[in-house]
Design a protein around this nucleic acid. Structure first.
Lengths: 204, 204
DNA sequence: GCTGCCGGATGACAGATGTCATACGGCGAA
DNA sequence: TTCGCCGTATGACATCTGTCATCCGGCAGC
């Protein structure tokens, strides 16, 4: 009856990407018309191929799937967006939704949900794992300020205060202040734990 | 001519696992006869289904794909082992080979290499990315002692010296000594960097 | 039987990190 | 307009971390 659904797949690991394409290729009503390996190639590819639904992994070089989703949503609001991720972090779900995503799937969900989600978003539905949705709501919003987040992100690789200060054009004392407040807000005891929990919650 | 190749797929993320199954299902001479999501279910499944080739992801609950490979290699040496991983860490390659793996593939290699590797290992070949092999050789062996590795692994989540000491039944001073030697061996400047580089090299 | 290395420990010291009080300009909400 | 928060900064202080020298018992290799 209706023409096939044109899907774009954005995922950096070729093997996974092509495997997902094979999976979707088994569906009669779905056609993978484009594949990209970088977040910053998504928008152009969506435009070029007249994509109906974009399937976006979060962790990608160039820019994240969430940023790509925001770009597509801004430029072509009719395109449906499915965000697909390894990590079921509530903060990711929240950001994805704010970026205009229509569905949020974790990669350890059954494969059948992928094609199902594609059809549902095209029908105007939103697809979100209820457990994750609950977790996202229960956890509340990111308590970190922009600067705190930046400093924490920069500190994630084990850089010292002096290096952070140089990299962010701040004084060492200020760096310590930000880390200190971040540590308190996250209710942890040092920067390493702060990085860890912020990551887990998708707040980084 | 020859009967189909019986393959087992071990990978914890359902969506990826089933997608890889779909991919391999497109090949006439390959049949995915078993899928497991945990490392500790591999050996039993290999036995039960008379598997020819086991495809093992490294990061899995239960036990790692490398440990699973060692088990299978010990119990059923005729079974060919393909280790598949997200991270092309030279240390992983080294451990995989020591565990008896016949092939080592990274997930960002083209999908076609998967079926190709399955056929090659069955023909007695070994399949290893030459760049990775070079990196593994260039890097040398893991310089960390068992204890240093344990302490570093335990320190990875940001635990303080006191917690590490308690968890590992050591004195705080000893914990600091191990971390200090690990930091020197890895040529870095603090425990966070040590964790980071040890992870990168697959030495953790 | 030495010589090394590993696991384990102590003490001392320097430098890094975390906390707190305090300050100032800007900006948004009440 | 006043209050509060953010970004930025300083100084002082306590604690944590990293380094080093030194020690012990055990065990492997020469």
């Amino acid at each position: 009856m209706s023409p096939t659904i044109k899907v774009l797949l954005a995922e950096d690991q070729s093997m996974v990407r092509e495997a997902l394409a094979a999976l979707l290729g088994l569906e009669d009503d779905i056609e993978v018309v484009a594949q990209v390996a970088r977040g910053d190639e998504v928008l152009a590819a969506v435009r070029e191929h007249g994509v109906d639904v974009a399937l976006l992994d979060i962790e990608m070089p160039g820019c994240t799937g969430i940023e790509a989703a925001a770009q597509v949503h801004g430029a072509l609001p009719a395109v449906k967006l499915v965000v697909l991720t390894t990590f079921g972090r509530p903060g990711y779900l929240r950001s994805a939704m704010e970026a205009g995503a229509d569905a949020f799937l974790v990669k350890d969900a059954p494969a059948a949900q992928l094609a199902a989600a594609v059809r549902k978003v095209l029908a105007g539905e939103r697809v979100i794992d209820p457990t994750l949705a609950a977790a996202a709501l229960a956890e509340g919003a990111n308590p970190l300020t922009d600067r705190e987040r930046e400093v924490l992100r920069a500190a994630a690789d084990g850089s010292t205060n002096a290096e952070l200060a140089a990299a962010l054009h701040l004084s060492q004392g200020t760096v310590r202040n930000y880390l200190s407040t971040a540590i308190q807000k996250l209710a942890v005891r040092n920067r390493a734990e702060a990085v860890r929990t912020a990551r887990e919650k998708g707040w980084l």
